[in-house]
Amino acid sequence: MCDIFPRGGFSLQTIDLRREYRLGRETIAALGGVDLSINKGEFVAIMGPSGCGKSTLLNLLGGLDQPTAGKVLLDGHDLSVYSEEELASLRREKMGFIFQRHDLFPVLTALENVEFPMLLDKTPLKERRRRADELLDLVGLSDKSGHLPDELSGGEQQRVGIARALANAAQILLADEPTGNLDSATSAEIIDALVALARARGLTLVMVTHDPEVAAHADRILQLKDGRLQAGNGDSK
């Protein structure tokens, strides 16, 4: 496998992580004190019923949201001290996001979508084109590089999403229900590809999923209920 990026991932740790939302006069506790730690290179699946706070936890881990209380430590660094711009920079350089709805930019081709994070990072055109080509090849879509997203199937769009997530030197991949909109056969293909890529690079992979078959690939499964981790789920193996 082509070794495009340096090996190794980040470790993640949360300390009494809480997130509350105000809804009218009520305060909803989406997360009620979560303590967990994820090792470098580990694949962790987060499962739980709808509304239990899985996506909230993932967003906090990725610095997309700010906790009401508690801390998120990325490789020992507290994310709360980072400014919005620094977090954006961190996401751009060190993290990769894979969304349930892939969220490819509809006006950019598959190749341009994969180039996007590198473009933000001011990677020269030739270099980013080369890397994007290689990434698309990696996910088996080099013949579809000039297609717009609505010209691709659901599975193909998700693969482009994965390629995009790997575009920069991502050390950690955060995937929110990446197979949620796909059929079982395609889901299996996607998960196999994603896990293989992550393991090959030693990336830390945190995935939110409903699917036990997907979760079965993980090194560890965290069960979340009512905003709290179930007993014995916080620490790594």
Partner: peptide, 16 residues
Amino acid sequence: QREFGAMRALGANLGH
């Protein structure tokens, strides 16, 4: 909105 959200998630800052 989702596009802009995705851009932010992928590392675009407010200036972008």
